[in-house]
Simulated assay, not measured.
Amino acid sequence: MSKARLLVASKTPAAQSALVAALEAAQYTLSSAGDVEQARAQIADSDLLLIDHDHLEADGLAFAAQLRTDASLKLPPLLHIAADLSGKAFHADDACLNASAQTPALLSMIAALLSARRAERLKDDFLSTVSHELRTPLNSILGWSDILMRQPRDADATQGLASIERNARLQAQMIADLLDASRMLAGRFEIELSPIDDLGFVIDGAIKSAAEAARPRQITITRQVEAGLPAVRGDSERLQQIVGNLLSNAIKFSAKGGSVGVDLRRDGDSLQISVSDSGRGIAADKLALLLSQARSGSGDKSRGGGLGLGLSIAVHLAELHRGSLAVHSDGIGKGARFTLRLPLAG
């Protein structure tokens, strides 16, 4: 089995580095980066990034933070090595080790981080395989239900076929949410940023997808889009996913015959998309915790339904777009409003 590829962030020449010497003796494949740009160029080919705080011109924590601002990067595990660890606020996902640690401790920590990374990859491969295997029969069910829905049939058959189709689509969405949640927790959620001149088009796509769930409950979806809005940078498919998740929640928690509204307007140096409903609302004691739970990935099935992942995914996607998601409710029985803010394209 070949050794892993380690990227060492350090300005110290390799020939003078005791750290590099120890890793070479352990037969790891090594490369080095003296600054963030060099690290960005090599990170995709690395299994682990070691940040040598004592031999960098830049602050090691700032070095890692700069890498994390680039949503397109798939960061490997990060290991910080410094002579003085006191007072340093490391990212929750990172590991750290005192520079005075003996070589066996260093190699043991590296082995543990690499083992966890391999386990994460195996889990992702497993989820991908399971997803494919589950989607294949679901696609067949959806295809045949669509064909049968086009044929003459009595009322009972119509109701039964509609139920089959609705539940098959629900299962397909759960599978997609599981895969997204796995990528999110592993830090490998990808978005492709490009200029979006018309966010109204994104909203229309989300409303069209949500209309099927709203129709049988006679829920009206209204749309208001301010004219002449500037562009934002974003991933239109993922932004539609955010709005779609918020619409899905709003529809689920609105009473039959209720209403859901989508509003797009400019607010200072950002655009905001608000999704509001006339449903059950959110109690004040739960309101404060809702988004923090979603941000941690714990979800809230009392608000999200299904696996409770939709809101967590929406929060994460908003942050990848350098935006934010906020929630407001006047209390139980008074509906709720979720607001997505996106910075204007610079």
Rank of each mutant, 00 (worst) to 15 (best):
E237G: 15
E37G: 10
V225K: 00
F189I: 01
D93N: 01
I191C: 04
H80Y: 13
L73W: 02
F63W: 13
L7K: 08
T339K: 01
K123A: 15
S108H: 15
I203S: 00
P152N: 14
S312P: 00
E192R: 14
R215L: 14
A25D: 11
Q241M: 05
G331M: 08
Q16W: 05
H55V: 00
L67T: 02
K334D: 09
F189S: 14
R238Q: 14
A314D: 08
Q151H: 10
W144K: 05
D177L: 01
A71S: 10
D35K: 04
G279A: 03
L311E: 04
A227S: 11
D35I: 09
G34W: 07
L30Y: 12
S108D: 15
A62S: 12
R135P: 01
P13S: 02
A18T: 06
S100G: 09
Y28F: 15
R40D: 05
S292P: 07
M149W: 04
M109A: 11
L138Y: 05
E319N: 04
K88M: 13
L291S: 07
N249T: 01
R238D: 11
G279W: 07
A213S: 13
Q66R: 14
Q241W: 06
A119N: 08
E212F: 10
R280T: 13
V202G: 05
A157C: 12
G323M: 00
A71M: 11
G244R: 01
E120K: 03
A92G: 00
V232L: 04
